[in-house]
Design a protein around this nucleic acid. Structure first.
Lengths: 216, 216, 216, 216
DNA sequence: TATGAATGAGAGTTCATTCAT
DNA sequence: CATGAATGAACTCTCATTCAT
């Protein structure tokens, strides 16, 4: 009977844990949606609580404060980004093809699956708070570093070289800039989701051309 | 006596006009500095009034509201941007050289002369309000349009062509994205102002390579 | 079998009773420590529960509410105070020596044994809530009454008299005031615990002088 | 005409200054009354604003925050206290008579004129916040120091001495304690304002007896 | 025109208390 | 009995905006 009891306790503990996780997600999804649609400053904690169908207190049970909500969201999105795209950058046998594939992954998969996350990543997390700025910088540095590493290794594997290490950084930053601006222009400002395939192809061609022109 | 009076009135009217313009500028400069350093939301009208050494009421005499202050600032900056850089894009006898020159102008002149304006343009005016978003979009469209036109005319003048009109737009957007991200990464996040010359050269090389690779 | 069963039940009932008492004490000690260190209003029920290593619900099982926690604490401390010091006041054969002994007991024993309790008694239970104020007043009245009685009986036993019954009350209140302020000044505001012996002696001399000067 | 204009401006500036001072006082008086009657924590800024017939914002225009309101109040009261009573302590030609006079001044004048201030001084400013605690300690130290100085000088002027400098401090603290507790017991807990004269006389007799018994 | 005190809606946040498990 | 997630009223504080002088 004791062991049965324990089993029951374990079951309810597991259920409770799952419910906690669900609540956390519900709130985070509500915040994501509102931040993406209304903007971070235009969204109040009350709105988030309402949409998540919980009380204000519950939001504060799961998140330290409003900023924390945005930071957790950012962390989640940036982790997702690196999971999907970053893989191509970290491979040992790096090549320019890998960099191309990463670009296509971004435009074809990430952009079409997560429009709200794009808005958070490229609009709502810009210039909002010092703590967030740090997270953004850390993320940017990582992703640029990944890309830099991939370019470096590709050059070694494929027998060419770049003018200088600084050049590689500039190239990496430029590629990220292309991603950013394509998203801002074609998805956030004007909705041209249906042309995304072509746009993405052109952007990738452009950036590959840029890379190749820098190889010696 | 009448004419004398008129003359005096005119003189004082002129002086008043000049004083008005000076006040307007003083307030706008105060706002620019604070927005760039503290951020738009972290800056209050009182702070702006204090820095400009005027009263809060005076700020509201010259500007409709806080948002208007940011919009006027944005308009001023975007006008300056187009004055400096856009010239190269609007020339009849457009060429790839012109596009290169524009890039160098941006990095060598605009970036080093107006660090505060860069912060406003690339950080503080992102995702703040619908009205501002419209101004930003209009500006982005114009500058992208200018660049598109220049690319188009260059291709005609120089006897080559781009895959499609859409490609030209993607190229233009990409170039703008490169500008944006170079500024964010090398000037706003990390201060590498002293390396700007080399960074700018590399960025321009990269984007020119991208353009050339798209020509047929 | 029944009696055996009963016996077992009784044993477990006893254990349960002991555990209850221990829990009650654990929570009360946690509250005492936090109230003394952080202050009543700066301490939350969650903090108390954490320190006591129980859940919030458990705190509410043992105490009606937060105020009750402070009241129980006050009652415990005031009972302890009267147990230690009050004895001297209640003796039939009261004398000025008894009053002196009470003073020394307070400074040498109570103050050095229970620093946290002093903070509760002299700082955290002042001006916090009407219900608590009543408890404090009841305690003050009792202790002043005890002291008044002792003074009265001492005067009868030793063959002198005080100007009026009101004078006796004033003397009693003054003595309590001396205790209070010595604690506040030398223990709570500035830590001069090591000088307590000398300070206590001087304070007792002073108050005894006061008493004697009022005798006729 | 210019000078007349200036005069008018000056007049309105003076009036404005006066109005500011009046508002400040109105708010401070409202806070005093509510803190004394309801208690510091039981009083909300809204209540204060309502009683003062101003908006919440106005309260925050004149005071940094709620704590500041209590601190300003405390500073005002402690200044008043030292103005009325402290004078006797600071005289060159100090004597025990001066110390007596100070006691009578406190009970006969201060206590009967400012019942609300007594509640603030002896109840509401105890154990509320670290910042306030510092102000209280500073005040207590000053007043105890004043009294210590007076006792020292009196002993020199009148040709007697105290056992040790520490004794003088203990005596000073004890006297302050007597004041405190008489107020708490006879004015704040039980309203015996009408007996104040007799009570004060007895208290002063008692404390003078204490002092004399310590002289050698 | 310039001033700056006054406004008050609205925001973020806290926390004592409850109650289903 | 113990738990701890959930509640939501209540609080302090901010700040863009107004308007009498």
């Amino acid at each position: 009977m004791k062991s049965e009891n324990r089993k029951i306790l374990t079951r309810s503990a597991v259920r409770r844990q799952r419910e906690r996780e669900e609540r956390y997600q519900t709130i985070l999804r509500a915040a994501e949606s509102l931040f993406a649609k209304e903007g971070y400053h235009q969204t109040s904690i009350n709105q988030i609580a309402d949409l998540a169908e919980v009380s204000v207190g519950t939001v504060y049970f799961y998140f330290k404060n409003k900023e924390d909500l945005l930071i957790q969201l950012f962390e989640e999105i940036s982790y997702l980004f690196r999971s999907m795209i970053g893989g191509e950058f970290k491979k040992r046998e790096a090549s320019l093809e890998g960099i191309m594939r990463a670009g296509h992954l971004f435009f074809d998969k990430f952009c079409s699956l997560y429009p709200d996350k794009l808005a958070i990543l490229y609009r709502e997390t810009v210039g909002q708070s010092p703590a967030l700025a740090e997270h953004r910088q850390r993320f940017q540095k990582k992703i640029i570093g990944d890309l830099q590493g991939a370019l470096q290794r590709a050059s070694e594997n494929m027998g060419f070289s770049f003018p200088s290490p600084d050049s590689v950084e500039v190239i990496a930053v430029s590629i990220i800039g292309i991603y950013d601006c394509i998203v801002s222009h074609f998805l956030l400002s004007n909705d041209r989701t249906q042309d995304l395939k072509v746009i993405g192809d052109d952007a990738v061609s452009f950036l590959m051309g840029g890379i190749r022109s820098m190889c010696q």
